[in-house]
Amino acid sequence: MTWAQAGRRLAGAVGVVLGVALLTFLLVHLIPGDPVELMLGESARPADRANLRASLGLDRPVAVQLANQFASLARLDLGTSLHSRRPVSALIAERLPATLQLAAAALAIAVVTALPLGMLAARRQGRVVDGVAMGFALLGQSVPSFWLGPLLILGFSVGLGWTPVSGREGPSSLVLPALTLGAGMAAVLARMVRSSLLEVLGEDYLRTARAKGVAERALLWRHALPNAALPVVTVLGLQAGALLSGAVITETVFAWPGIGSLLVDAIQRRDYPVVQGCVLLISTGYVVVNTLTDLAYAWLDPRAGADA
């Protein structure tokens, strides 16, 4: 990929982020009903409604609101929470480290389990090991995190007493949330590692390498893995982006004080500016991770540069 192509890709990503911001803004206008009534309930006094309407700028023309919205965004101003009266950006900044820590731990767990599992399954295709590994992967894809979480709590916190039930105190409290969040990703990744390795192992250049006497170990690590890594990187990027939104449910299960639980609390309090800020932040994170993945992909595989 040339610098010009990378530049175009980045410009495209900026465009998508702007589109996401526009969509987030439009959400409140597109839905039927009055957002102020949604936030305050039907029995609110007219004066309170007028106040809220004015403080949110909803009394002005939509075009003016949109312009103001983007102007504030440029200053990284996400508005003020209706509940705590604090700036949304400050609330998010407080909660962000916990979510990043959880996502990083989940990512690490997923990679560390999925790579060996997928490789083992590919090397022993059709054997018992393969069946067991892929059975686990299918389970990981099908068992929802809001059920796996409570099961882990029952087993490890209540039953064995190894970890705290919920909250964020000390390294041991990270284990179960990270396992819960990482399990689904590990499943998808393991299946991808297996299938792309199998595809590469069937190609001619590997038969040639084997025929000229390359040892099995070198065959796998030097010849097969680098090529099998490409689709895995793509899936890894997509999944890493999805971790941020998956954290919404996991954080709720474990009362983990991150962006996800901030969002769910805000939804229950109808604290619209906070909801908007969280949605915007998580989706921007998603776009950034996906763009980085595309760039990494083009860097790993020069053939893909042409259409990036």
Partner: peptide, 24 residues
């Protein structure tokens, strides 16, 4: 195509959560 790209760039579950939260 652009509309599809923007929607693809949005994490799906999150958008559904935001929409459902707004609509009640």
């Amino acid at each position: 195509g652009r509309l599809i790209d923007v929607f693809l760039a949005f994490p799906g579950l999150l958008l559904a959560i935001a929409l459902a939260a707004l609509m009640g």
